[in-house]
């Protein structure tokens, strides 16, 4: 009920998010699920009426407001007529002066297609009756983001800050606006640095959860993935004289860790500019506490951030390996 929303005075569930007010008289945990429990004992998600058409609006619940397709006003042309008879989905019913169709229209119910946008209008009132993308500032579809991003507006290719190769697309090697932390303990090795000839990537395994600090305390999860390991290809293993389960040391410009080698054909060397470049796969779930412990892949990754939402770049960097322990 908290998710569906209710009127504060009497605790009654609201019918859907249109009934929510911003004056404190209603409360709602998450507006997109508003309407899933519209009344006592009613759970819209449990409905199983297949119906005649292919939309089945009475089968389960789709957020928001049980709409099966977002921005579905775009299935009709600016005058509100379906673009094609075969694909008709929602349309303007001039006789009844409202939007109708197979799905619940994702548009103000009685806003006619020829309604002009209000210059000073707030929210969807600023949009005209032919602007289907109601959650966009201008109500229009965007092929790219013209503003708001620090890079862009169109995607391009830069190499990671650490890469074994030169950028094959531009003279510019890496993102000019990546957030860098130039410190003595955070060096970045240059492309082709002979000390770190291999690629490394980090990932999770399904058995441990994110950093592992929660799941490493569960014996049932720990037995499934009990130890830090590095996945290497049989080719690289042969070159370095490493056998499956041997201890190896993985090093980068920032640090070095020891772990077991897991030799597998699933790791495939890359052919880059005619050179064979090996890749090392590192899961990152272990640490110094828990039922199972192990070295941290994060000790190797460079500290740098993507410029928009500051996601750390730890999916690609360069490293070296040797047989043995620290």
């Amino acid at each position: 009920m908290e998710m569906n929303g209710y009127t504060v005075r009497d605790g009654k569930q609201v019918a859907d998010f249109a009934a929510l007010k911003d004056d404190g008289s209603t409360a709602c945990g998450v507006w997109i699920y508003s309407g899933v429990f519209p009344g006592e004992g009613q759970n819209m998600a449990r409905r199983r009426n297949k119906g005649d058409g292919w939309i089945s609006p009475e089968w389960g619940f789709a957020w928001p407001g049980n709409r099966r397709m977002l921005y579905n006003r775009a299935s009709a042309d600016p005058q509100g007529r379906p673009w094609s008879e075969r694909k008709k989905y929602v349309w303007w019913d001039a006789a009844q002066h409202k939007w109708t169709g197979y799905d619940r229209p994702d548009f103000p119910d009685t806003k006619a297609p020829d309604t002009p946008g209000q210059e000073e209008g707030v929210g969807v009132d600023a949009h005209s009756g032919s602007d289907p993308f109601t959650l966009k500032a201008d109500g229009r579809a965007w092929l790219f983001a013209p503003s708001g991003l620090k890079d862009g507006p169109l995607p391009t290719h830069y190499e990671p800050l650490e890469s074994p190769v030169k950028n094959p697309v531009y003279r510019r090697q890496d993102s000019p606006i990546a957030k860098r932390f130039s410190r003595k303990d955070n060096p970045i090795s240059a492309p082709g640095d002979p000390r770190f000839p291999y690629l490394a990537t980090t990932y999770r395994v399904t058995e441990q959860y994110t950093s592992g600090s929660m799941s490493r305390w569960s014996s049932w999860l720990s037995e499934l993935m009990p130890e830090m390991f590095a996945e290497i290809s049989p080719e690289l293993a042969a070159e370095k004289g490493i056998k499956n389960r041997d201890w190896i040391v993985v090093s980068s410009a920032r640090g070095e860790i020891e772990c077991r080698a897991l030799v597998t054909r699933r790791l495939r060397p890359f052919q880059l500019n005619g050179a064979l470049i090996h890749e090392i796969g590192l899961p990152y779930h272990w640490g110094y506490k828990g039922l199972v412990k192990g070295a941290m892949a994060n000790d190797l990754v460079p500290l740098s951030e993507e410029p928009n939402v500051y996601i750390q770049e730890d999916k690609a960097f360069t490293c070296n390996i040797r047989k043995g322990r620290l």
Partner: peptide, 26 residues
């Protein structure tokens, strides 16, 4: 399935050792 089975039936873990046999450690 392995975890759900062990949890429902309250079966103990069998030990923490990396087998080296792909992702199968049990």
């Amino acid at each position: 399935c392995e975890v759900a089975c062990k949890q429902w039936n309250q079966l103990p873990a069998d030990g923490n050792e990396l087998s080296g046999n792909s992702y199968d450690n049990t």
